[in-house]
């Protein structure tokens, strides 16, 4: 995986006082550490997610660990540039795919004439095992997407970035 390419966002007014702390500080130590650690954490997260059926772990834990990679990149290279690299729309789409996979597995087995999550009815060899794996991966995708999303949502408020704010009328309409 590659790191976000755009320039890290630095604080514009240089040395800021305590009262005006910005979210992101460019630090060669953090950037170097994240560069080395991120691929390993990502691999470990995927391992936990995929291997959860046979050892400790599962979709939830693996998903959280995978999402920490995005959080690490954001801490090291700036939240805005990482968010633009991930693209917020893609994040929402990924979560939607995860929910669809889980729902499809559950309801799909019912549609095939079994009961809920009765993997046996799917005419694929060893679908019990693969079905459980798929279920776990679906959960992992949901969790990693939502955790990264929560982080970006919170960080957008913290950095005072107003450009995505809707006006009050529109917000009322949504609620």
């Amino acid at each position: 995986m590659s790191t976000p390419e755009s320039e890290p966002v630095t604080s514009e007014d240089g040395d800021t006082g305590d009262s005006d702390r910005t979210l992101y500080v460019e630090s060669p130590i953090i950037m170097g550490t994240v560069r080395v650690v991120a691929p390993f954490v990502f691999t470990f997260g995927l391992f936990i997610m995929f291997h959860g059926a046979d050892s400790a772990g599962g979709g939830f834990q693996g998903g959280v660990i995978v999402s920490t990679v995005i959080l690490m990149l954001a801490v090291a290279f700036g939240v805005e540039s990482t968010r633009d690299w991930v693209t917020p729309e893609r994040l929402v789409a990924i979560v939607g795919v995860g929910v669809s996979v889980v729902l499809l597995l559950g309801i799909g087995t019912v549609a095939l004439g079994g009961s809920f999550l009765e993997y046996d009815v799917v005419p694929i060899d060893h679908f019990n095992k693969y079905g459980i794996e798929l279920f776990e991966i679906g959960i992992g995708v949901i969790v990693s997407g939502i955790v990264a999303g929560l982080f970006f949502g919170l960080a957008a408020g913290a950095s005072g970035d107003q450009r995505n704010d809707r006006d009050a009328d529109e917000r009322e309409g949504l609620l």
Partner: peptide, 29 residues
Amino acid sequence: EVKNAVTAVLAAYRGFDTMGEAVVVFAAG
């Protein structure tokens, strides 16, 4: 056919529960 009994319970025997949990996470977002 999975060796981790915890996963077997979560994703197969009590999968309805787990699907609910996954949807709760989705709902939080």
